[in-house]
């Protein structure tokens, strides 16, 4: 094969274009199905969310709803207006507490119960999942930048 600069450039552009095109294709394909949308309990209660879609929900762990049954845990996530029941099999984070912020990722079942495969709580006493802070601010129950550790249930409108 004659080694001309032009030919070399053509091959390079061809290979680079092919790899780039497959990368773009993969990214677009993954974006259509593998991205979790963030929803608050109110979003789930008002808008119809198709069961089986991957979601991330956030809010506070409702007081008095945490039930342990062997290694499975059931609790309700609330944004003080609406609640969602969540089930989770696994170890809860060390800082999982009633009345504290939590983010759960998983899918909504046909029965309206959210089956979580991941539960995230705070990493330390100063940290609150950002989505939860924003959603609480939207509900008007965010208590400034101090900890939201006291029960916010009284501010239900």
């Amino acid at each position: 094969m004659a080694l001309t600069r032009k030919k070399q450039r053509l091959v390079l552009i061809g290979v680079a274009g092919a790899v780039l095109a497959s990368a773009v294709g993969l990214v677009l394909f993954a974006m259509s199905g593998e991205i979790a949308l963030f929803k608050t309990p109110t979003d789930l209660a008002t808008a119809g969310t198709p069961p089986g879609q991957r979601l991330r929900i956030g809010g506070l762990v409702k007081e008095g709803t945490v039930q342990r049954n062997d290694a499975t845990v059931a609790f309700a996530v609330t944004d003080t207006v609406n609640d969602v029941k969540v089930t989770y099999k696994g170890l809860l984070p060390d800082l999982f507490r009633e009345g504290q912020g939590v983010v759960a990722e998983g899918t909504l079942g046909a029965d309206g119960v959210f089956a979580a495969d991941t539960v995230l709580a705070k990493h330390d006493e100063n940290y609150m999942p950002k989505e939860v802070v924003d959603s609480l601010k939207a509900q008007g129950v965010w208590e400034g930048d101090k900890e939201v550790s006291t029960t916010p249930a009284s501010s239900t409108n």
């Binding site: 993969l26 993954a30 593998e34």
Partner: peptide, 13 residues
């Protein structure tokens, strides 16, 4: 709009 891009996305790309 808030979304979370996690393991499934990266595994697929």
């Amino acid at each position: 709009e808030k979304i979370s891009v996690g393991e499934p996305f990266f595994n697929l790309t």
